[in-house]
Amino acid sequence: MNTLKMGIIGGGPGSMIGDIHKITATPSGKAQLVCGAFSSDPKKSQEKGKSLGLDQNRIYDSFQDMIYKESKLPQAERMDFVAITTPNYLHAEVSKLALEAGFHVMCDKPLSFDLEEAIDLQKVVRKAKGIFAMTYTYRGYPLLKKAADLVASQHLGNIRKVRVNYSQGWLSNMIEADGHKQALWRTDPTKSGNGGTIADIGTHAFNLLESVTGLRVSRLCADVSTLVKGRQLDDDTNIILEMENGAKGVLSVSQICTGEDNDLSLQIYGDKAGLVWDNSQPNELNLKYPDFTTDSIKSIEKEGESMTEVNIPGHSPYFTEGFQNIYEAFFKAIENHDKPLTHSFMLPGIEDGVRGMLFIEKAIESSNKKVWIELQN
């Protein structure tokens, strides 16, 4: 397989996620960063591109300029795929433009500004030649794929109870008022959409729950709250769920849990066994049985494979491994011309993104109306 040429849109100076895309897509040698439009501010875009050693002619002032000019280059020179690391409100617009120009796309979550945009983009993806994938990062964790396999094999039996919790504390105070870059756009409804915390980490929790259990949420009753006075978007959400098989569930996400870095956990209970995974020990999966015994499954290092480890506050080294595994699945799909995507746990696609936007919209509707809401698309 020839080295794929990568472009990045977003991820300017001070951004964490853009750097993560670059360092996890390129270490295997299967991809090389060749261009980027890193900021809506041309000076900042140039600054970032130069720091990455890019040719000045391949550092663009806007994503529109980048996609147009790259599409006009000879096939051997132009980028093959683009990583979209912008705030939410640009995800769908940039994805659509890139797909229509013939590029493959790796997009951050959530998929779009709102559900209507998501459904429109889904139509574009289905017609496009390029492959569209998303970075629901925890889908790249080997032990969570193992968990999904155990559930699918009926090792747990009939699923009856599910719980997912994702707690952070970085928005415990009104840091957006002090100009905190990441907080500013994530708490701004013109940049983030109608969802704050529910969009930022709630979609992670929701996608993890559905992908590992293999079950869809059929309906929900939500309390979507803003607990820091003066904040424009939600920062705490608690939801009661009912799964399509009748199982009961709870999803809780918050970014105002003071002192918490990145506390994510998943519990699935069937009539034969229970399964427990915690991000504080991401290389361990615990199985619990009716006689109160426990089996522990631990991840095994992959021989001959080098995983990139980067120190990210609140995250384990498995976070970047998850990113890298998703990119490896993405590259394989490109190599095999796998369009439309066949189901792969480690390669989330457009359906995951649309489902996530449906979840945000229906949870907020449920909270506003204080009623149970069906979750179907």
Rank of each mutant, 00 (worst) to 15 (best):
residue 313 P to F: 08
residue 33 L to E: 08
residue 282 P to K: 07
residue 184 L to P: 02
residue 227 L to R: 15
residue 3 T to C: 11
residue 70 E to I: 11
residue 149 D to Q: 13
residue 36 G to D: 04
residue 209 L to S: 13
residue 33 L to Y: 05
residue 284 E to F: 06
residue 281 Q to C: 15
residue 153 S to T: 07
residue 148 A to E: 06
residue 313 P to S: 13
residue 160 R to V: 09
residue 100 E to V: 03
residue 188 D to I: 15
residue 34 V to I: 12
residue 339 K to H: 15
residue 118 A to F: 07
residue 223 D to P: 00
residue 320 T to G: 11
residue 139 R to G: 06
residue 156 L to N: 05
residue 158 N to I: 06
residue 240 I to H: 08
residue 138 Y to A: 07
residue 376 Q to I: 11
residue 283 N to V: 06
residue 47 E to M: 00
residue 21 H to N: 10
residue 155 H to E: 11
residue 50 K to L: 04
residue 4 L to R: 08
residue 243 M to Y: 12
residue 213 T to L: 06
residue 19 D to S: 13
residue 39 S to E: 00
residue 113 F to A: 03
residue 71 S to A: 08
residue 90 L to C: 03
residue 184 L to A: 08
residue 171 L to S: 04
residue 349 G to N: 09
residue 343 H to G: 10
residue 179 G to K: 02
residue 100 E to S: 08
residue 370 K to V: 03
residue 191 K to W: 15
residue 90 L to N: 05
residue 202 G to Q: 02
residue 272 K to M: 07
residue 154 Q to Y: 10
residue 156 L to H: 04
residue 55 D to R: 10
residue 82 V to S: 01
residue 66 M to F: 13
residue 373 I to K: 08
residue 22 K to C: 08
residue 314 G to T: 00
residue 54 L to S: 04
residue 66 M to P: 01
residue 225 S to N: 10
residue 220 L to G: 06
residue 126 R to N: 07
residue 80 D to T: 12
residue 59 I to N: 05
residue 268 I to E: 03
residue 320 T to F: 05
residue 191 K to S: 12
residue 306 S to C: 07
residue 207 N to G: 14
residue 234 D to I: 00
residue 140 G to A: 05
residue 5 K to N: 13
residue 278 D to A: 14
residue 32 Q to L: 08
residue 195 G to R: 03
residue 87 P to H: 09
residue 224 V to P: 04
residue 86 T to K: 02
residue 196 G to E: 10
residue 203 T to E: 05
residue 28 S to D: 11
residue 141 Y to M: 14
residue 310 V to F: 12
residue 52 L to T: 00
residue 190 T to R: 11
residue 106 M to K: 05
residue 114 D to N: 10
residue 177 A to Y: 01
residue 81 F to D: 04
residue 86 T to N: 09
